[in-house]
Design a protein around this nucleic acid. Structure first.
Lengths: 163, 163
DNA sequence: CGATAAATGGATAAATTTGTCGATAAATGA
DNA sequence: TCATTTATCGACAAATTTATCCATTTATCG
């Protein structure tokens, strides 16, 4: 059970946009800054745009901007835009009965999904930027087991950006 | 964000075994009873066996039995046997610093993972069988959007088995 | 011991997710 | 209006997950 790549990408992009509101940024620029595949990011941004979380503007000085107040934007909303949290509303076997009554197992599993929703809902994007944190922006592990696409000069400044 | 099929299968099998302890059951028998792909179930049972949750016995009257006391067996243990809950221990970008210090975003995401672990750990397999529940055993929806492989005579008895 | 039943392990195939690419549409500036 | 920039859309490719199949091992029965 693992956080998906898509969710990670979406959140990195949104947090970064929230931290760079001066102007709009092209998807290539965001991909560069947050170190993720540019072409896949396009797709992710499309979903986010579709849900009104970012807004994309075409043309010469276009790009993406955050369309929502970071303080009022929960992580859950971002997650749901790209990969909705799926509640268990009926037992996952194919029979025509019981309606919404779940057996104990699926009741328990749905409880887990509820907890996941609650946990995602309890954090805002704004919080990511305003909460003090001395961690330097880029730390050292792999994306899904693979090394990142390039190396960066070590950044020693204390910032509060996403990693 | 969704509960994986593999997890669902593993739990269905374990709960069913916990409810049928009279003798051992072959993987084909379990697959039939719990309506899941027999050959894939083999693999799942292999993992469960490897983790000591079920024990497999080869040969003529072999099969699988639950190797643990259902009351002491948490859902988390079953989940971890087939698809471990992955905590976020370092920021998922590939740089050589920061150790275990996470930025606010990954701190929040890891908090979600902790909640997931907690939620899974808070239920036991035994609970699935002993808690009263009037839901009839097989209720009506699809496995991953697909209809089940066969139909069953409607079961009208009130049981407490997994669905 | 020989035949059979069943798990175990690993190779392969199908399906889904993740990621890339190119064409099209909209906006801007000249 | 034309060239350029950039999002949007959809087809395609790669990788991963899910599922199947077969060969091997271990056990039981006669």
């Amino acid at each position: 059970m693992q956080m998906s790549n898509t969710v990670e990408y979406a959140l990195r992009a949104v947090v970064w946009l929230a931290d760079h509101t001066e102007k709009s940024h092209t998807s290539a620029e965001i991909a560069e800054a947050t170190r993720m595949p540019a072409s896949y990011l396009s797709k992710v941004l499309k979903s986010l745009s579709h849900e009104g979380i970012v807004s994309g503007q075409r043309g010469v000085h276009g790009g993406f901007t955050l369309a929502r107040d970071p303080e009022g934007l929960s992580i859950l909303e971002v997650v749901n835009a790209v990969e909705p949290v799926q509640r268990i509303r009926a037992c996952p076997l194919g029979f025509e009965s019981h309606g919404k009554n779940l057996c104990n197992l699926h009741r328990a599993l749905d409880d887990v999904m509820i907890e996941i929703e609650r946990a995602f809902a309890s954090h805002t994007i704004g919080e990511m930027l305003t909460r003090p944190n001395r961690v330097k922006p880029l730390c050292g592990v792999l994306v899904n087991g693979k090394p990142p696409r390039q190396d960066l000069p070590a950044n020693t400044g204390i910032r509060r950006s996403h990693t």
